[in-house]
Amino acid sequence: MSEIATFNAHPTVAVRAESPLAFSRVTVATLASAQGAGVCIRERALLGHLILRGKADDAGFRAGVESALGVSLPLKMGPVSRDDGRGVSVQWMSPDEWLIVVPAGEDLATEQRLRAALSGHYAVMQVSGAQTLLELSGPNALEVLKKSAGYDFHPRNFPVGKGISTTLAKSTAVIRRTGDTQWELIIRRSFADYLFRWLLDASEEYGVFVAR
């Protein structure tokens, strides 16, 4: 009897996948291009998202994760471990929880690599259908975040590279700083329309471009 049932969620035949924003309407005035926009919003849809749980103080666990993912395992709140070339990132979420983002369709393979490398008490769960990633950038992106969340986004407290999870409007989000004026937001599927349109509404005054 197997202990864990892994599941390949992806069809082998051609099937149209829909991101959580598939039906979302844009109801604010937007710009036709990023030129002159204070804020740019772009969805990076359908990526692979996984939750990893385990014991950070177990050296075997840490080594297993690092060998399976090829990036270091962050051990506290702070910089997200990333390999942008391979599109892999690992973020500390909690003392025993990490969020792994991989390219589209690589979630099961990532899970299998982790399971091959790990033993003992740990867990890997696929959540690729549960969330989507938005890129928020532009000279006024910071203001939009400040309108939406009570966290301190000043570089002294939130340097480039850092990732957190916090409240966003009346929902929650994972927020990562990828540049001085560039951010990634990872939001839940069911709240995606609310948050996407909230961000657009908060961005409207700065001139907003939605990259599709």
Partner: peptide, 21 residues
């Protein structure tokens, strides 16, 4: 503030919402 009308309370949607509409 902005928490009024459609943003008064978050509306959560399923993946099939577009069809229902």
């Amino acid at each position: 503030g902005r928490h009024c009308n459609e943003f008064f309370d978050p509306r959560r949607y399923t993946a099939l919402h577009g069809w229902h509409v």
